[in-house]
Amino acid sequence: MDLLSECKASEMFEGQVVVYKHLYAYIDSMCLKWCLELNIPDIIHNHGQPISLHDLVSTLQVPPPKIGGVHRLMRHLAHNGFFRVVKIHDENNDNEEEKEAYALTVASKLLVKGTEHCLAPMTKCALDPTLSGAYHFLGKWTFEENLTLADVSLGTNLWEFFSKNPSYLSFFNESMISDSQMLKLALQDHRPVFEGLESIVDVGGANGTISKIINAMFPELKCIVFDLPHVVENLSGSNNLSFVGGDMFHYIPHADAVLLKGILHDWDDEHCVKILRNCKDAILNTNVKKGKIIVIDTVINEKSDEYELTQMKLRMDIVMTNVNGKERSEEELKKLFLEVGFQDYKISPLNVIYSLIEIYP
């Protein structure tokens, strides 16, 4: 029996589009990788104005047979929002004929190197063949009861892989720093969250990017960056910012508040409960009655988020198979909070991607 015998031809064609759309979705990522490898956002930025295809390929020194290929790639990236096609006057033409040129959009401006909110490190890390290649092993991962996707693809868990490969650890840390820099804009609108606190410990804070942002907002607030010893051993603090080595599964330094930025989504429920219990112990051992845990993470909300945003969050959820973590819904987070014995929590939108969650003991 033909499974599709009752379907109209138009319906089958629509289904074909869905299949092909996902079949070739990786092309979007590969075009973006090409764009960064050739430093095209930087070239347009340094050009000082929208750049024509002729000037772009001349700067890149592209051989003539590949100029058409560059045009096709730029057309694809422009269609997907990375560049804007505009008209400019041809200065080399006496008739001042207009020609097409590529201008930066907000998305490609975020890829220009050396800027405060550059996401190029995050993009390059995510598209590295060794790391992104892990997702070819999702089928095998499905039947490995206790292994992460990294265990299956790399032969070890992701954190051990980073510790044994310093270049990749640096690569990963740079990507996390670029992501954290984006939060600087959002945190400015959430100052009340930190008001009244005398101390805060940034768990898994790496080089202290988030703590430095908070410290700049509240110079009198004592910020403790807490991470594994090998992560913080060569880092030095200043004024009210310090670095402490340790393991969050054993203990967390005492403070009025504990910050977990992008931590809970790295772990399964069992490990999250351990982390949250240690966080609770850390804030209950201070004299402040308003102690709390501050979580910055993605919260999946399929009912209220727009389709494109939900799609991105669900993709990020699949990314977390690398470490057996997950992006959670409010219901899943609430379950964790109740298991640890927290009395209340509050979720506020931080930016489009992340939410800010305050948990009270």
Rank of each mutant, 00 (worst) to 15 (best):
P349Y: 00
H89G: 06
G69L: 12
I263S: 03
L127P: 01
D2M: 09
N278H: 08
Q49T: 11
E233P: 01
L185S: 13
L60V: 04
G196L: 04
E145H: 13
E308T: 11
I275G: 02
A78V: 02
K292N: 06
P50W: 03
E339K: 12
F161E: 05
H250A: 12
E160I: 09
T286K: 03
G262H: 08
R315V: 14
T59A: 10
D42S: 12
T298S: 13
L264A: 06
D179Y: 08
D269M: 04
M1W: 07
K261Y: 03
D151E: 09
K33H: 08
P229H: 04
I224Y: 00
F13N: 12
K261A: 11
H76T: 12
P361T: 04
P121F: 00
F13L: 15
M122G: 06
G155A: 11
A134V: 07
S170K: 13
E332H: 02
S29T: 10
Y307L: 14
D202A: 04
I43Q: 07
T142F: 12
L187V: 04
S175Y: 02
V85I: 15
V288K: 15
G81S: 06
N95Y: 12
L284I: 07
S132L: 11
P349E: 08
I210E: 01
M30L: 15
E270K: 10
K212A: 11
N46Q: 14
L235W: 01
C223F: 03
Y26I: 14
A255S: 11
H265V: 09
I357M: 04
F226G: 00
L187R: 00
Q188P: 00
K87T: 13
V106A: 13
G155K: 08
C31I: 07
I210C: 04
S329P: 00
